[in-house]
């Protein structure tokens, strides 16, 4: 009984790590721009594909290299590629709207539509056959006390925690992090204080996309089948996780991801797995109806 519980705990931590890393990306952009970046789930999907191509290329051309080095190189290049995509989207779609002072809703619609373009563009270019993510290093299974852990699982959990720690450090203890918090606090006073707003936003998108890239590689390694619509449902769920934690606060988004991961794994442990979405969403609906700002969010008073 205890070992089953522990096994599920580790599964939930791994599953929650993905939600957390994607939720952090939503949360960063939301905190700075007050924009739900609905394309973020699909940026994650694209990160999986970038990682797939980069890793395949490395494994094909640098066959003698040890796995961890290929993994590291893939990670760096994927982060660069995904950040490039995030920045491209920001530059082409969001910034012009921001310059025009368009209503927030129009930016949200643009984000939704960008998600569709990424999904279906991918499908149109690469075809419908789903791809298998290459193995960069062998899977090692550790057994103790009836619990089986793979090295992948440990890497996922450790990376997610490290990524959050780093992000927390950046947001809370660096100058640019202070600027990010300032933008989130009052967007109109920021340019008056001599803070370059666009540079801060660019940096935010790089951070968010890099997190999506990390999540993408790890997801590809853990669940090696890629398809163009994989980003949609996981993106929506990560977004909901961010909201449950309290969007606009990175601690909340991080915890929200794990909460959602736990809920889903527990549901799967006791019910048929098709009930996963149903029960997870019902719980989320209840949480939001009772505490609309999420666990860590701060209610904003509206001025008349």
């Amino acid at each position: 009984m205890f070992s089953t519980l522990l096994q599920n705990l580790f599964n939930a931590l791994q599953w929650g790590s993905f939600y957390s890393m994607i939720a952090l990306g939503y949360c960063l952009v939301y905190g700075v721009l007050r924009l739900i970046n609905f394309a973020h789930g699909d940026i994650f999907m694209m990160a999986c594909y970038f990682a797939f191509f980069i890793a395949s290329w490395f494994l094909g051309n640098l066959a003698g290299m040890p796995g961890p080095i290929i993994f590291g190189l893939t990670m760096i290049l994927t982060m660069v590629a995904t950040s490039g995509l995030g920045l491209f989207i920001e530059r082409v779609a969001y910034r012009p709207l921001r310059k025009k002072g368009a209503h927030r809703l129009y930016v949200v619609i643009t984000a939704l539509m960008l998600g569709f373009i990424l999904e279906n563009g991918n499908l149109a270019v690469l075809g419908a056959s789903s791809r298998r993510f290459p193995d960069m290093f062998g899977k090692i299974v550790f057994q103790f006390a009836g619990v089986s852990l793979t090295n992948y699982k440990i890497i996922v959990i450790v990376t997610a925690v490290l990524a959050f720690a780093l992000l927390n450090l950046i947001v809370n203890s660096t100058k640019i992090g202070m600027a990010m918090r300032a933008v989130s606090y009052d967007k109109f006073a920021i340019p008056l204080m001599g803070i370059p707003l666009n540079r801060i936003i660019t940096f935010t998108f790089i951070l968010g996309s890099s997190l999506a890239a990390v999540a993408g590689i790890l997801f590809g390694m853990s669940y090696p089948v890629l398809d163009p619509y994989m980003g949609m449902i996981i993106g929506w769920k990560a977004f909901i996780a961010a909201v449950v934690g309290g969007i606009g606060d990175i601690k909340g988004a991080f915890l929200g991801g794990f909460i959602l991961g736990f809920i889903e794994i527990i549901v799967v442990a006791f019910f048929p797995s098709s009930y996963k979405d149903l029960i997870a969403f019902v719980i989320l609906l209840v949480i939001l109806s009772v505490k609309p700002t999420g666990f860590f969010g701060v209610a904003k008073s509206t001025k008349i």
């Binding site: 939301y30 739900i36 929506w236 977004f239 909901i240 909201v243 969007i247 048929p272 098709s274 009930y275 979405d277 149903l278 969403f281 019902v282 989320l284 609906l285 939001l288 109806s289 609309p292 700002t293």
Partner: peptide, 21 residues
Amino acid sequence: DDYLAIITIAANFIFVSLVNN
């Protein structure tokens, strides 16, 4: 606003997965 948007999305998911089950 955004929170209500989530509730509507969640409602959509709930109906779909309810009927799926």
